[in-house]
Amino acid sequence: MYYYIYDTYLSEKKYEKTLDKIKTRLLDLEIQGKHERLTLLKSIDELIIDELKKGTSTVIVVGNDKTFLKVINTAARNNITIGIIPIGPENDIARTLGIPPEEAACDILAARKIVRFDLGKIKDQYFFSNLSINKNLTRLAVVKDTYKITPSAECVELNIYNFFYNSDKSLIDKKLEQVLPQDGILELAFKVKEKSKGWFKKAEGLLVDSVIKGKKFEVKSFEYIPTLLDGLRVIKTPFVVEIEKQKLAVIVGKDRLINVD
């Protein structure tokens, strides 16, 4: 049985017609199920776990990247297949996975092409895309196998990537083209500020300065440094980050921008 979760922003009146069209299309395709709206009072994890007990094995998020990333943890822990019906802006994940917006996504769901993705793991927390640290970098060190990496003051951001999902390929730093979500490898990246090229141009953006591949990294620090998982959840250093192969089942489209099977 399918369980459809609608993000809170879809309560806005402008999305009413779109949601009606989606429901009609789902009915046509006979992939109906339970539909539920997120509210500030209900945790997405609790909702999914309640539905799991009733026999749900597929969760479809109706929303954007953030909605999708919110269900990763629970889906990975409980072996649930997830899909997305993208609506509105900030839908780079859906575009990368080849899922068209709004009711066109229903056809992709009906075709049910499932691909398994690796996930990054820190204790019992999973992340789909990356973790990032952008404070007090000089107070931490990363240990990999037999060596230690220490960032200098020049370094402004540390990321550990599993999946890079910016759908505009021109914006992808060449060094991050190697980030593949099915290779069983994490990419540790250190970024520096992009230097301005002219007298009047302001420095903007970050450049990838270093990339180190690995299956396991230990981030050490003498103090707690906040770390953001998938841009949503905050954990603190120190921690060990590992890759868990083929942990998450996701419904994808034919026109996906990444080469996954």
Binding site: Y147, V192, D209, S210, I212
Partner: peptide, 10 residues
């Protein structure tokens, strides 16, 4: 593996 100028490896 790219060891950039912003990091040190021991």
């Amino acid at each position: 593996t790219v060891i950039g100028s912003s990091i040190k490896i021991e």
